[in-house]
């Protein structure tokens, strides 16, 4: 067993896990954070996307122990008790998600994009979301959701 201590959504969390435990498994089964999903198990679909030290990664391809001592943000940590993240708001209002299975990953990928590039072009959004597959929507409403969230974050539009 290996002791793994992570700062998950701002709180320090520890667990003893076998070394072969992926970050995704630790989050889902040890910490009950089931927002990140197992979709393809090979790092193609992005349903397991979480942020480690601010960077998006496929949690299914990372061992929990590799994230030891680092900051992890999962979808559960994006909203506070008081406020949604603008992406969560626009995705809801525009019905950007249908079945929702890809949503946590897509929202986190979009968040890292907007953190680095507050005013992305549509092409830049597509590039940033290339590692997140969605089978329901055809992506149109997802792109619109990201564009709208960027507008809100830049203060160009009131957070309705």
């Amino acid at each position: 067993m290996t002791d793994v201590t992570l700062t998950v959504n701002g709180k320090e969390r520890s667990a003893s896990v076998p070394p072969e435990t992926t970050l995704l498994e630790m989050l889902r089964s040890k910490l009950n954070l089931t927002g990140a999903k197992l979709g393809c198990d090979v790092g193609d679909c992005g349903a397991c996307t979480v942020l480690v030290a601010g960077k998006s990664v496929n949690a299914c391809l990372m061992l929990a122990v590799q994230a030891n001592g680092r900051d992890v943000l999962t979808i559960e940590g994006l909203a506070t008790a008081e406020a949604f993240h603008p992406l969560q708001k626009t995705f809801e209002e525009l019905a950007s998600l249908q079945c929702g299975f890809c949503g946590p990953g897509i929202i986190l990928s979009a968040k890292t994009l907007l953190d680095e590039n507050p005013d992305p072009t549509v092409q830049e959004i597509k590039d940033a979301l290339a590692g997140n597959l969605c089978r329901c929507t055809g992506y149109t409403k997802i792109l619109e959701g990201v564009v709208d969230a960027a507008r809100i974050m830049n203060g160009k539009q009131d957070a309705a």
């Binding site: 790092g43 992005g46 996307t49 960077k55 998006s56 990664v57 496929n58 990928s109 590039d127 590692g131």
Partner: peptide, 8 residues
């Protein structure tokens, strides 16, 4: 790959 793969 994609952003996630390039980050790792």
């Amino acid at each position: 790959g994609a952003v996630q793969t390039r980050n790792l």
